[in-house]
């Protein structure tokens, strides 16, 4: 059971501010979905390996060759806040 407090904790982990008034509704919606997920508990997966990749590939590499980078202008093109070539953002704490 996910509680209102759990929703707020997960919200912090995911950096999504949860409005206190919405937390209850979120909790009940998340519980509905999680209850559905519970059905997996009935599947016997002992000795079943997990599938991370459906295609069996290993050691896919790139050669150590450098290529041209984006220009500073291109890199900063999408920001609304830059200063002297840096991205500018809020203080950290």
């Amino acid at each position: 059971m996910i509680t209102k407090e759990d929703v707020e904790h997960v919200g912090w982990l995911a950096r999504i501010e949860i409005d206190e008034n919405d937390a209850d509704e979120y909790a009940s919606q998340l519980n509905d979905v999680l209850n559905h997920f519970e059905q997996l508990d009935e599947v016997d997966t002992e000795n079943v390996p997990p599938t991370y990749h459906v295609i069996d590939l290993v050691n896919v590499f790139r050669e150590d060759v450098a290529r041209e980078s984006l220009t500073q202008d291109k890199a900063l093109e999408n920001t609304s806040s830059s200063k002297e070539g840096y991205f500018k953002s809020y203080r950290i704490i």
């Binding site: 200063k83 002297e84 840096y86 991205f87 500018k88 953002s89 809020y90 203080r91 950290i92 704490i93």
Partner: peptide, 14 residues
């Protein structure tokens, strides 16, 4: 950090 980490006004990122 613009200023020091505790009393900074913002961060610049490279």
């Amino acid at each position: 950090h613009i200023g020091n980490i505790e009393k900074s006004k913002g961060t610049l990122i490279d």
